[in-house]
Computed example of a mutant assay.
Amino acid sequence: MLLQSGSLRCSPPLRGQFPAGGALVRARIKEPEATRRRNALRRVDRVLSKGNYKIALSLVRRLQGKPGGLRGFGAAKQVPRRISSLDELKTIGVDITSLQSLLDSMLNSIERSIEFQLSNENSILDLENLIKGSYESVCEDHVMCVQHEAGHFLVGYLLGVLPKWYKVSNVEAARKGNYPAGKVEFLGFEFLREVDGANILRRNFSSGKLCNRTNKGKISTNALNRFLCVLLGGLAAEHLSFGYSEGLHSDVEKLNRVLKWLGFTESEADCRVKWAAVNTLSILVRHEEARCKLAEAMALGRSVGTCIDIIEDTLNDNEI
């Protein structure tokens, strides 16, 4: 058995959530639309498998907001940019202050990862490689890995960033002692190649110097915000599923490198990250059921198109 629903640590669905009576009739009426959507997503899968990512994105955009199409892609309601704390959400009629401890824990994980990056010659990714196989409960680590990647996938999709492909190790490999690892690759973050090519020295991070203010124009504000939220989607999913996150995070290292490459000061970067953390948590809290079902599908190795279809099915009776 790959994953037990209990092991996903998701809350059970509320009573009365599923349609009955006349609602079932409406569900049958919608069935042809769901069939059209699945057929269209099979075509998206075929295009993705050939590496024609821009064509795949074009196909997905044609399906946005249409009958039998995709109502979730790029449709997530986002926290206003001026908001950087859960308390401030009350001013716009949203109260998720019960998540304050999770937000604090998430921000502490980010700070810890950045501090390690500044004080150690090895990258966080190097550290992750060194500690592979050291955990006592590999199966639990596997579940955390799947939830992490599902968080990336779901936040990206709802913000309009198309996943190109993903991978998560299967539970059999984890049981044989292989450290569970995963990745979701998105279309639209190609600027990362330029960031990596710049080979920014770590002493620039610690000194707080600006790397290059002229780089700011290379990424739009909206694109940067989506990137930050997608990167934090994995960390946020871990905290929502387990209440904590183990270890350090290469996602945070990547986030920090990009912000420094763009020339943000420490204060500016801090504001951006806090907003992204609040925004990401608010999205994942609203779509807990979608995240759980998506994680199950990813653990089974379902195609990107099938994963998207599962998200859309779950969103049908939920507010995006």
Rank of each mutant, 00 (worst) to 15 (best):
3 L>W: 06
9 R>I: 11
9 R>N: 10
15 R>H: 15
15 R>F: 12
16 G>K: 01
17 Q>E: 12
24 L>W: 08
27 A>Y: 05
27 A>Q: 05
30 K>I: 06
33 E>N: 13
38 R>N: 12
39 N>H: 14
39 N>A: 13
40 A>R: 09
46 R>A: 07
48 L>Q: 00
51 G>M: 04
55 I>T: 09
56 A>D: 01
57 L>R: 03
58 S>E: 12
59 L>I: 03
64 Q>T: 05
67 P>H: 07
70 L>C: 10
70 L>Y: 01
70 L>A: 02
72 G>S: 08
78 Q>E: 12
80 P>S: 09
85 S>V: 01
86 L>F: 01
98 S>G: 12
109 S>A: 12
117 Q>H: 14
121 E>C: 14
124 I>K: 05
125 L>N: 11
128 E>V: 01
130 L>R: 12
130 L>F: 11
130 L>P: 10
135 Y>W: 15
140 E>P: 07
141 D>I: 12
141 D>R: 10
142 H>V: 02
144 M>K: 14
146 V>Q: 05
146 V>W: 09
151 G>N: 09
151 G>F: 00
151 G>R: 06
153 F>E: 00
160 G>S: 01
167 K>N: 13
169 S>Q: 01
170 N>E: 14
179 Y>V: 14
180 P>D: 02
183 K>L: 13
185 E>K: 06
188 G>E: 08
192 L>M: 07
196 D>A: 13
197 G>Y: 11
198 A>Y: 08
210 L>R: 13
213 R>N: 13
215 N>R: 05
222 N>D: 14
223 A>H: 15
225 N>K: 08
227 F>C: 07
228 L>N: 01
232 L>M: 00
236 A>R: 08
238 E>Y: 04
241 S>W: 07
246 E>K: 13
248 L>H: 10
251 D>C: 04
253 E>Y: 07
254 K>Q: 13
255 L>N: 01
257 R>S: 06
258 V>N: 04
260 K>S: 11
263 G>Q: 00
264 F>L: 05
265 T>I: 06
265 T>N: 02
267 S>N: 10
268 E>S: 01
269 A>Q: 04
269 A>Y: 07
272 R>I: 10
278 V>D: 10
279 N>P: 02
280 T>I: 04
287 H>L: 03
287 H>K: 08
290 A>N: 02
297 A>D: 07
297 A>N: 08
299 A>E: 02
300 L>E: 11
307 C>H: 06
309 D>P: 00
312 E>R: 00
